[in-house]
Amino acid sequence: MKNAIELLLRFGYHLLFLAMEFLCFYIIINYNREQKGIFLHSANLFSTSIDARVDKVNQYLRLDMENDSLHKQNARLIKKFIDYDLNSSLHDNDTLAVDSSKYQLLAVDICNSNFRLRDNYLTLCAGENLGITPDMGVVSQNGIVGIVKKVSQNFSVVMSILHSQSNISCLIKRNNSNGMLTWEMGNPKIMHLESIPKHKTVLVGDTVITSGYSTIFPKGIQVGKVKTVVLEPGSNSYTIEVELFNDPTAWDALYVIANRLSGEQKRLEAEILQNE
C-alpha cells in the first residue's frame, strides 16, 4: 500500500496529464463534427486494414487447398481441349461420340526430378493408388513431360523427354509433316525433330504438336516451336531444333494422361503382327 502511494506521488503528475489529454480527446471526438469524422474514418481504415491482413494470412493458409483444386480444375480443362481437338479432327464423321472420355487426366504432384544427366527421370507422388500404369503420358500445362515407365503403390517413375531413348512422334502443325522428337545432351529447352523429309517445307516459328500416332499422347498437345531449320548437304531430312514451350528445369503442375482404350488398340495391333 505504501509503495502504491509512493508510486502515485511519483507518477501522479504524468498520470494526471495523460488522464486530462484522454479527457480532452474524448471531448474533441464527441463534440467536434470535423474531428469526429476524421476519427471515425481513420478508425474504420485501421480496422479494415487489420481485417485485410487477417484475410491475407487466412488466404495464405488456404493456399495449399486452393492449389490442389486449381490443379484438378486444370486437369479437367486440358482434357476438354484434348477432347475438342479429337472431335474437331473427325469432321466427316458424324459419330461425334467417339467417346469424349477416351482420355482421362489425373492431376499429380512431383516428388523428384532431374534434367542434368544424359538420361533423366522424374518421380511422381502417385502410383497405382491413383490408377497410373506404365506407358501413360505425362504432360504439363504447356507441353509434354515424359512417359510413365514403372509404377509402385504410391509412386511412379517417368522417363523424361530429356532421355536418350525418348522418341516422341510429333507433327508440324501447319502441314502435318511427321517427325520424331529426340533430345541431345545439352540445353534442356531445345529438342530435335528428326526424319522430316526434305520435300516438306518447314519454317522457323512453326508449331510442333504431338501426333497421336501412339497410345501415349493424344493428338494436338502443343510441344514447342521450330527454332532453326538446317538441311545438311547430302541428307534426306531436315535437322530441326525445337524450342519447348514448357521449361523442363522447373516443372509445375503435372497431369498423367490415361488412355482408356490403349489396351484394346495394343491388343489389336499385336494380333496383326502375330498373324503375319
Binding site: Y13, F17, M20, E21, L23, C24, F25, Y26, I27, I28, Y31, N32, Q35
Partner: peptide, 17 residues
C-alpha cells in the same frame, strides 16, 4: 471547438516543467 485548445494547453503545461 470543445477540447481542442484545452488539449493543446494541457500539453503545453505538461511540457513547461
Amino acid at each position: 471547438s470543445p477540447g481542442v485548445h484545452a488539449s493543446a494547453l494541457v500539453f503545453t503545461a505538461y511540457i513547461k516543467s
